[in-house]
């Protein structure tokens, strides 16, 4: 059973990887990578790393791939494939990747790791191996420093991504910037959908438009109310 599952998911993983590099449209490459990642998670499960497999599916095939899908739909470039490079480049790439793959396979299947071949049966696992409890305990005790460094790295990456993808009004900001108090107060339209898609100025303009519309609507309703009151008074006067 394990063997069948292993070969099935290994074949799917390799096919997905080939699809990533062979498909023409980046969007299709992203979808092939999703297939590859799910098959890889299956392999992780076969290695009794349940938590990593779950994280792989949730974080990768879920969140990161959504990011990829959005960006590839946004950028939307098509037409380049692995055959469109120069012939020399392709030959060199094939040579390098092929020789690396051969060396890796020789090292792993051949004589390289004799300890692995002699080991025979794998050690029996304790209960809870690869579960969230074991990983959490290791992360917060022995590997606390790596954990903190990873969180710092994630923070830096998030800030960097926001800085990189931010829309600038005049290309790149030049020269030193002087920060005024008013810069700290968000202007109208900050954080809105319009700002994200059409820039800060458009968002401000839209916000100003909305404000003007509201003022006009208030004034019209006030005028209408005043007219109604006057009419009512007239009617009262006429009745009396």
């Amino acid at each position: 059973m394990t063997e069948v599952l292993f070969f099935l998911s290994a074949i799917v993983a390799i096919a997905g990887a080939v699809g990533v590099i062979a498909l023409k449209n980046p969007f299709n490459s992203v979808l092939a990578l999703v297939v590859h990642l799910v098959a890889l998670a299956m392999l992780f499960l076969l290695l009794h790393s349940e938590f990593i497999a779950a994280a792989q599916v949730v974080v990768y095939a879920g969140a990161v791939m959504v990011l990829y899908v959005f960006v590839s739909a946004y950028v939307g470039e098509e037409g380049e494939t692995w055959t469109s490079g120069g012939r020399l480049q392709r030959a060199l790439a094939f040579l390098l990747a092929g020789s690396l793959g051969t060396v890796l396979l020789i090292a792993m299947l051949g004589s390289g790791l004799r300890g692995l071949a002699d080991a025979g049966e794998l050690p029996t696992l304790e209960a809870g191996f690869g579960g969230a409890a074991q990983i959490g305990e290791l992360l917060l005790t022995r590997y606390l420093l790596a954990f903190e460094a990873a969180s710092l790295l994630l923070l830096a990456a998030a800030v960097g991504a926001v800085l990189l993808a931010r829309r600038r009004e005049d290309g790149i900001a030049e020269g030193p910037r002087v920060l005024a108090v008013t810069d700290l107060v968000p202007s109208a339209g900050t954080g809105s959908m319009t700002e994200g898609t059409r820039g800060t100025l458009a968002a401000r303009a839209m916000e100003a438009d909305r404000l003007a519309e509201r003022v006009i609507a208030e004034r019209t309703s006030a005028a209408k109310k005043a007219a109604e009151q006057a009419e009512a008074k007239d009617g009262d006067g006429g009745g009396a």
Partner: peptide, 28 residues
């Protein structure tokens, strides 16, 4: 044996490296 897993890992690594060499779209 885990040797099989290592072999799959080596093949996947070679495929990925080949892709890095030949593709030119930064997304890919």
């Amino acid at each position: 044996s885990i040797v099989w897993y290592l072999a799959v890992s080596g093949i996947l690594f070679a495929i990925g490296l080949f892709g890095v060499f030949v593709r030119r779209n930064p997304l890919v």
